[in-house]
Computed example of a mutant assay.
Amino acid sequence: MSEPASAYSTVVVGTDGSESSLRAVARAGALAGACGATLVVACAYLPTEADERELARAQDVLGDEAYQVVGAHPAEDTVRTAAERAAAAGAGKVRTVAVMGSPVETLLDVVRRENADLLVVGNRGLNGIKGRLLGSVPADATRRSQCDVLVVHTTD
């Protein structure tokens, strides 16, 4: 008889500081706590010197999926707040990372670097027409992830 599959040991969750993403963080925190897993809270951000036209263009195309965080200091504040929310939900071991880059690439990079066995994302952007036509962070991350992905229902 083979050994049963073990619980998750490292869980990665992404946040942009929005209430929707913080709901995913809370669910990831509760799950990580229940499994005794380490939770890594990640936030992607644009550099503060990003061209304002580039930011406006991204928001026109992506709407709600555009960057919520610009700059390393706001990103650090975002992950600190998210880590508090995760701990309140039950996470025992929480680490935070703020990485300059696109949300999907950042999440996948953190999953690889941390050797994570679960990625948690919110469902914001999955149901809208823009998300279906252009892709969304949860859809792209789910499709490209090399580990299990939990999509948390975070939008009404």
Rank of each mutant, 00 (worst) to 15 (best):
R132L: 13
L118T: 01
V121Q: 06
V121E: 00
K93L: 07
A87V: 11
R53K: 14
M100I: 03
R27T: 12
V111H: 07
D117E: 02
A50P: 04
A37Y: 09
A26M: 01
A56L: 11
V104E: 09
Y67G: 12
Q59H: 15
G122A: 06
V111T: 01
L107F: 05
G90T: 10
E52V: 15
R113T: 01
A82H: 03
E84T: 08
L133P: 06
G63C: 11
R112H: 11
C43W: 00
E54I: 10
P103M: 05
G29Q: 02
T106Q: 11
A42W: 05
G29W: 01
E84K: 09
T81D: 14
G33F: 00
V61D: 13
P103W: 06
V120P: 00
V99M: 08
V79F: 01
R27W: 06
N123L: 05
T48L: 13
G125N: 05
L119T: 04
R80D: 06
R124W: 03
A89P: 04
L108Q: 05
V97G: 02
A87M: 06
L119K: 10
V110I: 06
V121S: 10
R113G: 09
T38K: 15
A34R: 05
A86P: 01
D60L: 14
D109P: 01
V99H: 07
A28T: 00
A58W: 03
V61S: 15
R80L: 06
A89F: 09
E114C: 08
A72S: 15
N127F: 11
C35F: 08
A50G: 00
L39K: 08
A58T: 06
A56V: 14
S21A: 12
V40E: 08
V94Q: 02
K130T: 00
A98D: 07
V111I: 07
I129D: 04
L62D: 14
G92E: 04
T48A: 14
T81F: 10
A116M: 03
N123D: 15
V111G: 02
E84Y: 04
C43I: 02
P103N: 01
K130F: 01
L133N: 00
D60G: 10
I129M: 12
D51L: 09
E114G: 05
S21E: 03
C43M: 11
A44D: 02
